[in-house]
Design a protein around this nucleic acid. Structure first.
Lengths: 191, 191
DNA sequence: GTTAAAATATTATAATCATCATATTAACTG
DNA sequence: CAGTTAATATGATGATTATAATATTTTAAC
């Protein structure tokens, strides 16, 4: 067989990486397959020898993006040993760095509004990935499920809004208030 | 002059109403001008005699949608005299009714993810309308600005996620946790 | 009724998209 | 190096889009 062992798998991975990056920054519907393929160093024609259709790619990209974010947050948590891990994670998630670096940021705020309008398959995938993220945060914060829901909703909503508004001061203030709030949520659940 | 007095203004209002309804349900980019015009009982050709372009319509639709939501929430608040107004508002905003009736629901969760990818003009308009909503909630809850930020971020994030996930139980639980959380935010700000 | 301006509809344009068919290239095997 | 075939590129299709130009309809005023 031509092409080295695992070549196609590697290319497939490149496409997923390019897609995840694009989706995180521009959403799903505004990103074209030609654009994604170009980001992977390819032309658009070969796409369908790798994926059944665009939906399938969205599903895989969501999975990759959440795995990527969870890994990143784990690293962030391990970096600061002087405070509880969840503290570091929240401070990063609600930082201006995370708000601004959408390309490598959490995909949940980026797609939260759009998902409800996409195919059932994509919604199911998003739900699966959301649950994964939810579990990660809930475990790390050592809180009950309900508190975990509130915490993640608040985090996702804050980042989405902080990214949306064009007033830099307001955006910063949203992040700050979100951080204060998140700490309060955790503290009050332990009281 | 042909056509009755104020005819064009009335039609213009119809277009904005149709657009706001469509945007709240399907976002901005996935909705076409022909679709909006059909919703107003017209064909697409006449659009440009009413608006400069699609962006202009988005801006006006956002303004209308937020006004509409604020009015609705005021009515909801006035309905229940047995509890603080903010309580009623939060209970409605985080209800399954509001989650499911996207057509007449708050536009903030629907567009929160998409806005950052749209034109500067639209972002500015969204920011203006967001501030208007923020002020409305903050005043009604009688909390300081920072608490208002946290409260609205939590509300918007919760509804966006509750609309996004395809698991009905999870969606309900998100709303429930959001309500509990919102009340906590307000209570703690007064302590 | 006729007219004329305003409002709306029809049609056109050029771009972009997802998807598909076909042609070309790359690289392992012998 | 030649042959085979997987991987990729090129090009096509048909749909949809925002926008614009032109044609038609509507209705108030005469």
């Amino acid at each position: 067989m031509p092409y080295p062992e695992g070549h196609k798998l590697k290319v497939r991975k490149h496409i997923i990486t390019s897609a995840a990056k694009a989706f995180r920054t521009h959403g799903v519907r505004n990103i074209s397959l030609p654009y994604i393929m170009k980001g992977a160093g390819l032309t658009h024609g070969g796409f369908y020898s790798h994926f059944e259709n665009k939906d399938q790619l969205v599903i895989e990209a969501c999975h990759f993006a959440i795995s990527d974010t969870i890994e990143l947050l784990k690293k962030v948590a391990d970096k600061h040993e002087d405070q509880p891990k969840i503290q570091s994670v929240i401070e990063f998630y609600l930082s201006s760095v995370h708000r601004d670096q959408t390309e490598i940021g959490c995909i949940l705020p980026a797609l939260s509004g759009e998902i409800s309008q996409l195919s059932e398959e994509i919604r199911n995938a998003y739900t699966r990935e959301f649950k994964r993220f939810l579990e990660f945060i809930t475990d790390m914060a050592k809180v009950d499920a309900s508190t975990g829901y509130a915490l993640v909703s608040s985090m996702v909503g804050t980042v989405a809004l902080a990214r949306a508004v064009s007033d830099p001061k307001l955006s910063d203030d949203l992040l700050l208030a979100g951080k204060t709030q998140a700490k309060l949520i955790i503290a009050s659940s332990k009281g």
